[in-house]
Each structure stands twice: as structure tokens, then as C-alpha cells.
Simulated scan of single mutants.
Amino acid sequence: MSLEFVLLIFAVAIAGGIGSVLRLYMGKWQGKLPWGILAGNVAASFLVGVMASSQNFFWAIILITGLAGGLSTFSSFAAQTVEFMRRGRLAQGLLNILTNLVLSSTAVLLGQALAT
């Protein structure tokens, strides 16, 4: 294993830890929807869009896999959506699905547009 690869692994782990801690704090922002998780997913998607066309493979991997991977969370989004529906809050569950999919996808597109 090369030194560069070992450094990449450590950098991804550190960035992932930072993203996860940010998600932990953002996840506390609740309201009609789980706004913190939505914001984390959108921010991570934007970062992926910006870095997807990067010529710097090393930093792209660190920021996409590490930071964005730690910050975004499909499992929390899915669990929160299921909980809305389990409690009979169908409209909130559907709105959570819609906002996460539309805003995150739009954020990737905006990030790509900004990067080019």
C-alpha cells in the first residue's frame, strides 16, 4: 500500500468524522420537517456537485466520500419519513421525501454549474 493511499484513507476518515459531527448537531434542528437533516443532505449534495468535475482526484475523494458522506444521511431521512407515516402524518412524510429529493438533486446541479 502506497503512502499516498494511506494518507487518503486517513484524510477520508477525518473528513467523514467532521461531516458526521456536523450532521449530529444539524440533526437537532427540527420543526414541521427534520430541517437539519434536510440541510445536511442538501449541503452534501452541493459539495458533490462542485467536486464531481474536479481534476484533483485526491481532494475530490476526501470531500465527496469523507465530508459529504459523513454529512449526508439517507438512513435518517428514511427513518424520519417512516416515522411521519407511522404516526399518520402522511403529508409530512411525503413532503420530507419531496424536499429531500428535489432540493438535493437541485443542489448537485447548482454545484456542477458553479464549478464549470
Results as ranks from 00 to 15, higher is better:
21 V>I: 15
63 L>W: 07
100 N>C: 11
114 L>G: 12
34 P>H: 13
32 K>N: 10
1 M>P: 10
83 E>P: 03
107 A>Q: 07
69 G>E: 04
49 G>V: 09
78 A>C: 04
18 I>H: 00
96 N>K: 11
80 Q>F: 06
110 L>Y: 12
105 S>N: 14
109 L>Q: 08
45 S>A: 15
40 G>W: 05
86 R>H: 05
89 R>F: 10
52 A>W: 02
105 S>L: 15
97 I>V: 12
76 S>G: 07
21 V>P: 00
96 N>H: 13
22 L>D: 02
23 R>C: 03
55 Q>T: 06
100 N>V: 09
31 G>T: 14
46 F>W: 14
36 G>Y: 15
5 F>I: 01
72 S>R: 06
75 S>D: 02
62 I>A: 11
96 N>C: 06
108 V>D: 06
114 L>M: 07
30 Q>W: 15
3 L>Y: 02
18 I>R: 02
20 S>K: 01
54 S>I: 01
17 G>C: 01
37 I>Q: 14
76 S>L: 12
27 G>W: 13
39 A>T: 14
28 K>C: 04
19 G>R: 09
49 G>C: 08
58 F>G: 07
34 P>N: 09
94 L>V: 08
25 Y>A: 02
32 K>Y: 15
113 A>E: 10
32 K>P: 08
109 L>W: 15
48 V>T: 09
27 G>Y: 13
41 N>A: 12
38 L>Y: 13
57 F>I: 08
64 I>P: 03
77 F>H: 14
1 M>H: 04
73 T>Q: 05
1 M>I: 04
108 V>W: 09
95 L>N: 11
28 K>Y: 08
69 G>Y: 00
68 A>Y: 04
93 G>R: 14
95 L>A: 12
114 L>H: 05
114 L>A: 11
15 A>S: 11
20 S>I: 00
71 L>V: 02
79 A>L: 13
29 W>L: 14
20 S>A: 11
107 A>T: 10
82 V>P: 08
18 I>W: 00
71 L>I: 01
6 V>S: 03
18 I>N: 01
71 L>T: 04
11 A>I: 01
74 F>E: 03
5 F>L: 04
16 G>M: 00
27 G>D: 13
1 M>F: 03
50 V>T: 00
87 R>W: 04
37 I>S: 12
36 G>E: 15
41 N>T: 07
55 Q>V: 01
4 E>C: 02
70 G>D: 00
109 L>K: 10
84 F>K: 07
98 L>S: 10
2 S>V: 01
70 G>F: 08
109 L>S: 13
12 V>D: 03
88 G>D: 15
10 F>R: 01
8 L>V: 06
41 N>K: 08
59 W>L: 12
19 G>L: 11
114 L>Y: 05
45 S>R: 14
5 F>E: 01
107 A>D: 13
41 N>W: 15
90 L>N: 09
35 W>C: 06
9 I>W: 00
105 S>W: 13
34 P>A: 10
110 L>H: 10
3 L>V: 10
25 Y>E: 10
58 F>W: 13
11 A>F: 00
40 G>I: 05
111 G>K: 05
100 N>K: 07
32 K>V: 12
56 N>T: 03
36 G>C: 12
85 M>L: 14
62 I>E: 08
4 E>M: 02
93 G>V: 04
2 S>R: 08
73 T>P: 00
